[in-house]
């Protein structure tokens, strides 16, 4: 005879144990934990505040540890119990529908989504272009590395100067700090390396200028052809400059306790490739080209753990600076007989 398992466990898409017995078992466990938490809290507070034949508990580390332990048990068990009770008699589909209705209530007054699970790309059409209708935003801010390097160089060298002042003060007051003095040399070495890294980032940022991508229409549709304009500013000589249209899948998954993201490029089309390009401050590199979305291509897709992204990628191999790569997301909507939005 097999006893029903008082817990549920999911192995892949297979549920081990009966769902109801498992949920009831888990609910009973969390109820017991909740009651134990309440009991410990009541006992601790009573021993501390209620006068009786027992010696009163001091308000020290032990008291606060017990209070924190009991509060944690109550909070954790209470939340889990409530969640477990809500799950009884409710399928995943039903909960999904209820969550969807709550979302609809939040969205009341706003336009309903024409294309579910397709990103709207509202922020992609915020900025008007100078040559074409929209200027696409880049996914990463190019000055991020420079800002980080500046902050690191500033903080490290400030700390080093404070330590130097402490060492000098020690020598001044005839009580030299030899260990700290010895430590100053390796710390100074790291400080020099950080400063050099900062200068390199600064040179890169001043050499590799902004990348601008503009497009005449957005969102895009499979089978559509669109005009795009790329401008690369800066002062540099590039061995190669490439403009690509890519489509990639992105999956987020758990591996142990880590959350990992995997990407796979399913389409990569080189739209423009030029070698030995010289860019000056007053003479940026610019090019207009056609962006062709294949007719059978998958549209953009976004769900909590999976996505299909479309991007225009501008990359360059520069000398003496390292290569740069800027990515500009676009949204490809499914082709549908819906009225097109006014681009402005």
């Amino acid at each position: 005879m097999r006893f029903p398992k008082p817990w549920s466990k999911k192995r892949g898409s297979r549920q081990v144990g009966r769902a109801l017995v498992g949920t009831v078992g888990e609910a009973a466990f969390f109820a017991a934990l909740f009651l134990a938490g309440v009991f410990i809290l009541a006992l601790t507070l009573a021993q501390r505040f209620v006068a009786g034949p027992w010696p009163p508990l001091a308000t020290g580390l032990g008291f606060w540890t017990l209070v924190a332990l009991a509060a944690g048990m109550i909070l954790m068990a209470g939340t889990s119990l409530l969640w477990g009770v809500l799950q009884i008699g409710s399928s995943r589909e039903r909960r999904n529908v209820m969550a969807g209705r709550a979302e609809e209530l939040e969205l009341m007054g706003r336009a309903a989504r024409e294309f579910p699970a397709v990103p709207r790309g509202v922020n992609l059409t915020d900025s008007p272009g100078t040559r074409l209708t929209y200027r696409l935003p880049a996914t990463s801010w190019p000055g991020k590395r420079l800002a980080a390097a500046t902050a690191l160089a500033l903080m490290w060298n400030t700390v080093w100067l404070v330590l130097l002042a402490a060492v000098i003060a020690g020598f001044w007051s005839d009580s030299p700090r030899w260990v700290l003095t010895a430590l100053l040399f390796p710390l100074a070495g790291i400080g020099v390396w950080v400063l050099r890294y900062y200068v390199r980032c600064l040179r890169e940022a001043s050499g590799v200028g902004a990348t601008i991508v503009e497009i005449d229409e957005h969102p895009l549709q499979p089978g559509g052809s669109y005009r795009a304009h790329v401008i690369q500013l800066g002062r540099m000589t590039l061995r190669r400059l490439r403009v690509e249209l890519i489509c990639e899948e992105e999956s987020t998954f758990r591996q142990g306790t880590d959350i990992r993201v995997d990407r796979h490029r399913i389409l990569s089309e080189i739209i423009q490739e030029q070698y030995n390009v010289t860019i000056d401050l007053g003479r940026p590199w610019e090019q207009e080209f056609q962006l062709q979305i294949p007719s059978g291509a998958m549209h953009s897709f976004r769900s909590p753990h999976n996505a299909v992204h479309w991007k225009v990628i501008v990359s360059g191999e520069a000398r003496p600076w390292p290569s740069f790569c800027q990515s500009f997301p676009v949204v490809v909507q499914p082709a549908a007989p819906l009225p097109k939005r006014n681009p402005r």
Partner: peptide
Amino acid sequence: GKGEEDFKV
């Protein structure tokens, strides 16, 4: 697939 399952009713 590789990512965690998403679904929408």
